[in-house]
């Protein structure tokens, strides 16, 4: 019996092969160390910080808590899918403009979460935003500029509602 497993993952619309992985590897590990997608970050690896947030079948989840080998056939979307090379999504742009980025370690996870939130609830109030993002810890900003970035992004989205979004 082999100690290793091989399987395929659909990541950002691409079919990717994971060859000779270890069974216990999380989706976070496989994205970062085997597929070269280091945007999702490893800050706690127990679902308590949100830095590794990705979308799996349109649900926001912590990729550290997804067993990679069980994600075969599922639609995985990461921070790398949000904007074409050299461009920024409207949420990414709002984070940069609002000063929501300091060390940046929580940033990709937060941006994935904010995209998900504004897709589902484009008119979320401040307190709804706070609850929706309570699973994404940030240690640098005290969240002030992050909330501001969400306000900017939400306004931008509403003003520009007819266009398709990155």
């Amino acid at each position: 019996m082999s100690d290793l497993v091989s399987y395929r993952l659909n990541v950002n619309g691409q079919d990717r092969t994971v060859a000779d992985g270890r069974l216990g590897e999380s989706l976070l590990y496989v994205l970062r160390e085997r597929l070269g997608l280091a945007g999702a970050k490893n800050a706690c690896e127990q679902g308590e910080c949100g830095s590794c947030s990705v979308m799996v079948d349109d649900e926001l989840v912590c990729s550290c808590l997804v067993l990679a080998a069980s994600a075969e056939g599922r639609d995985i979307r990461t921070i790398e899918s949000l904007a074409p090379e050299g461009e920024l999504s409207y949420v990414q742009q709002a984070f940069v403009d609002a000063g929501a980025v300091q060390c940046g370690f929580c940033t990709p996870g937060l941006i994935v979460s904010v995209h998900d939130l504004l897709e589902r609830q484009p008119d979320a109030t401040d307190i709804e935003v706070r609850e929706a993002l309570s699973g994404n810890l940030c240690r640098c900003t005290g969240y002030g500029r992050i909330l501001e970035a969400v306000r900017i992004a939400a306004a931008e989205r509403l003003a520009d509602g007819s266009e398709s979004r990155a």
Binding site: L88, F95, V96, G99, G104, T107
Partner: peptide
């Protein structure tokens, strides 16, 4: 704006 803001927001900044 931070010069590293864009790569950090894109998830490309190398930690």
């Amino acid at each position: 704006p931070r010069p590293d803001g864009i790569p950090k927001a894109r998830g490309e900044f190398a930690f």
